[in-house]
Design a protein around this nucleic acid. Structure first.
Lengths: 175, 175
DNA sequence: CTACAATATTCTAGTACTAGAATATCATAG
DNA sequence: CTATGATATTCTAGTACTAGAATATTGTAG
């Protein structure tokens, strides 16, 4: 099960949803901070999950604006698959393939000045990202459930560690 | 330019290579620790880079065992593209889309005991990964060029930060 | 009563790989 | 001189998205 599949399956495990609503929830919760799932991918993934027998859809008559919806819910197989996948995600660290490391691999061929300048931009953007996450955290305030606060905290921790490393590295480079 | 494209372009920027040799270098340098590039993707990517006019190939008569090779080198456009891409990788942090965060998003629906157990497995595997990187670093010894040592150090730093976070989190969860 | 905005799904045509088999060449051991 | 294994590239048939356009329905503002 891919990242995007699990993200969508999670939402359906929480409660039945239709496609458009999933997009709205992803947006409202800022899930794109930690998962990558384009609008047009949602229906694609929904179809795949259905083909695998993990979810089933029921058409609903139109309510309010717009045409009728297809509401998806977990099948028993889907319930089991969700549980397995969620626990597996919590138990198995995955390598991150970051372009930054590929960039570092090129250092010997790059003039030092250019490298230092690029790395300083990198720190600046990391700081911006940290501030952005921080702002989102403050904006949510004390209303956040425990696990959501933890997710913000994890992001801030990882960004902080990378930022400290890059700063140290730049200092060493420009010595 | 994707991660994999830049990784391969980097090797060709260093010096001309043929496809099979690129596989060997990727393997020998342990590049799969920080970049994802399957054996069969190498020729695919080489073809794409050539179609974009960033590299050109020259057939070489067979030497030693095996058939003749196609040796790839940068074109002037490739040289420029490589420089731009390498600096961009050093200047632009990218979000990491980790299944772990998706797992965390599922915490409210998971019995605490199961979650704690999964997270303990996660720490254990992170420790294993850290030890593995550490072993590779020691094995390389003092022969490592500056930037390669830095890459190991970055990996260790990031793994260390994540490990510390997970340990703290498990402690809080099981309180 | 009509145009517009919001809601909702589907379709088309891509991109970017990836696994694994097929094909081919050559050195060397037996 | 033949089988094997190392070297080297190409091909086939997938998977997993992704952007963006097309299609359709319904409430509401003018």
């Amino acid at each position: 099960m891919t990242n995007a599949e699990l993200a969508i399956l999670s939402l359906i495990a929480e409660k039945p949803h239709h496609g458009y609503e999933i997009e709205q929830v992803i947006d409202a919760r800022g899930m794109r901070e930690w998962t990558e799932v384009g609008f047009s991918s949602i229906y694609y993934i929904l179809k795949k999950l259905q083909d695998k027998g993990l979810i089933q859809s029921r058409p609903e008559p139109p309510k309010g604006r717009g045409p009728g919806r297809k509401v998806y819910r977990l099948t028993p197989a889907g319930q089991a698959a969700w549980r397995r996948a969620a626990l597996s995600a919590l138990a198995n660290p995955e390598r991150a393939y970051s372009p930054f490391q590929v960039g570092l691999a090129n250092l010997p061929q790059i003039p030092e000045q250019d490298a230092v300048q690029a790395l300083q931009e990198y720190s600046q953007r990391l700081r911006d990202r940290r501030d952005h996450v921080h702002a989102r955290l403050n904006q949510a305030g004390d209303t956040l459930p425990f696990h959501a606060a933890a997710m913000f905290d994890l992001s801030l921790t990882l960004i902080g560690a990378e930022l400290a490393w890059v700063r140290r590295f730049v200092r060493k480079l420009s010595e």
